[in-house]
Write a protein that binds this DNA or RNA. Sequence first.
DNA 1: CAGAAAAAATAAACTAGTTTAAGAAAAACA
DNA 2: TGTTTTTCTTAAACTAGTTTATTTTTTCTG
Lengths: 192, 192
Amino acid sequence: MEDYSVLYSYFEKINKRQLSVEEKLEIASVFRKEHFKKKELVMSAGDTNTRHYYIEKGLLRMFIIDQSGKEFNVLFAKEYQWLGDLGTPAETSYFIEALENSSVFSVDEEGFSKIIGYYMDLADNIRKSYIFLQKRFVSILSKTAEENYEDLIGQNPDLVQRLPQYHISSYLGVTPVFLSKILAKRAKKNTK
Amino acid sequence: MEDYSVLYSYFEKINKRQLSVEEKLEIASVFRKEHFKKKELVMSAGDTNTRHYYIEKGLLRMFIIDQSGKEFNVLFAKEYQWLGDLGTPAETSYFIEALENSSVFSVDEEGFSKIIGYYMDLADNIRKSYIFLQKRFVSILSKTAEENYEDLIGQNPDLVQRLPQYHISSYLGVTPVFLSKILAKRAKKNTK
DNA sequence: CAGAAAAAATAAACTAGTTTAAGAAAAACA
DNA sequence: TGTTTTTCTTAAACTAGTTTATTTTTTCTG
């Protein structure tokens, strides 16, 4: 029997009270625990009815592949964060890949609305994602790659540690080569 | 007495039935009809409890001003479209400005949830905005400004007519000078 | 319709970021 | 632990896009 305690804790936290045995049973009945190995694909463009994932452990990325075949990282998600295509059940244009061996609780759209609806405002959830993306959008367009890197390291120092550089560069919208240049410049500054 | 017929039609359309007199009265009681002259500011960064706008006539832009003082157009909205900061009631970081003399129906967050809730799924609305923004984000990062211009003209030919070039350039994330270059190149191609 | 103001075009010098390629360092693995 | 694979660095030539400034064109207004 899989351990659902992290998931229960999550709901107890947002709900600010203990869960009853019945509630736990219901949660366990709609969520499925899944394990993904590093490099394993969780979902692919073209999939319909994609699931939502609450991450127990690990690190994943959501990305797209554009017409020219280039990958572009839209976002990263780690322990205790949600990840999924909010556009479901429509056909997704995103891929999700595990960057570390990860364990997640997954739920389909139906279960998501049902269970999440009890505890949190779904609209509010999407709203937050929207606001996050808007900020990221403006930031990437209005700042230089160097400034955006500084912001990222300021806000998510651990992510920078855990991710290979070429994933960060893709997140920042620049080539790995250019990010490497930025880092070289940065390193020089810091020794001086 | 202001004319609310465009607003009623909107609700009748999404609702797929006629509205009763009582329903119309309720709508009229929560929505306020407002007129904005070209260049007039509808909302400003720092405002809280911003309103939602359903546009009867005209064209507006939502934009931010970054740290360096540069403006950046996030989106345009015209007749029969909704516009507003989905993050309300929190302090907004956006400005909205009328680009043409415009008339709109405005409603506060409370009225929005109340009335809109009857007819449409609010979450779904935000979800759509989110998906739109995600597409735009990826498109701007993965394509050249020239490709993005072609996309825009393909999808919104009228907008390109109605907007001054420098607003389009800001929407595309480039300078007006560079957009002008793109257009010159385009014009040459089309005469050849 | 003239004059003023706003918007667009053009030019030239510049910089942020790309591309390709090759070697160095680090990580994974057997 | 040595070997293979993956990741990172560096270099050099290039391109997309910026900046500043000037001129031309278009739009607005009295």
